[in-house]
């Protein structure tokens, strides 16, 4: 059963603000919280890379990459908690039911990160179905999503090495292009994609009013900061 989004801030928090900071602060808190419940915005950049030209990273992360299987799900739970993804466990189990593909990376025996992918033959991924990304997958296309590297394993070129091994594995499966999205404000991820040769295609600005999302596709504005 879906839980309705509460349209009011917590009474306890408002009373605390009022007590500690006064009426104006309490009123500001009410307005900010109500606004956050009513409206939400995000913005992603759609990126793509040509799998015929995979750059080999100079610095390798000493990773062992495997295809993601159901036995890996308990390990993914820990990383979902780390990234505050409350629906991740259920979503990933469902993604496996739909036969979506995935990869997991290990350093020694410790899980470093995960990556999910789909293609045109599979059930359309919810991001492609519900979000107007403007990506139409062809027979040689794969769409990558939910790419995550555990905080304690970042650095040392591991994200880049993980992507390199993913790209190689997908090329071996016959794919020619790999699509993805990255949040505009995620500078680290954008740097990883840019230095691995992914090309920015367009941005998709999302806006939620109550529970309804709408999306607008925009051309890349070079001045807005695209790493080229």
């Amino acid at each position: 059963m879906k839980r309705a989004i509460p349209l009011y801030p917590s009474v306890y928090a408002v009373r605390r603000r009022f007590r500690e900071e006064g009426a104006r602060a309490a009123a500001r808190h009410v307005i900010a919280r109500t606004q956050a419940q009513l409206i939400e915005r995000n913005c992603h950049i759609v990126v793509v890379t040509d799998l015929h030209e995979i750059a080999v990273p100079v610095r390798r992360g000493e990773l062992r990459v495997e295809s993601l299987e159901r036995r890996h799900l308990p390990l993914l739970h820990e990383l979902n908690q780390e990234r505050h993804d409350l629906t991740g466990d259920m979503r990933f189990a469902g993604d496996l039911d739909k036969r979506y593909g995935g990869f997991v990376a290990f350093k020694d025996d410790e899980l470093v990160g995960f990556y999910w992918w789909t293609d045109a033959s599979m059930d359309p991924h919810h991001e492609l179905r519900n979000v107007a990304l403007g990506v139409e997958l062809g027979p040689g296309d794969a769409y990558g999503t939910d790419f995550y590297v555990a905080e304690r394993h970042r650095g040392g070129g591991r994200a880049s090495d993980f992507l390199y091994q993913i790209e190689t594995a997908l090329r071996e499966r016959g794919f020619e292009r790999l699509w993805g999205t990255v949040e505009v404000n995620n500078r680290a991820a954008r740097w990883t994609y840019a230095t691995r040769g992914y090309a920015d295609q367009w941005t998709v600005a999302g806006r939620r009013l109550l529970r309804r999302w709408s999306y607008r596709t925009e051309q890349i504005d070079e001045r807005a900061g695209v790493y080229r």
Partner: peptide, 26 residues
């Protein structure tokens, strides 16, 4: 591979703290 995504973020913080330079996206 010295300036990977993690290294870049550390470098940007260093430039901000040491030279008071804000590095914009562009």
């Amino acid at each position: 591979g010295v300036v990977d995504s993690h290294g870049l973020m550390q470098l940007v913080s260093f430039l901000r703290e040491r030279y008071e330079i804000a590095v914009p996206d562009e």
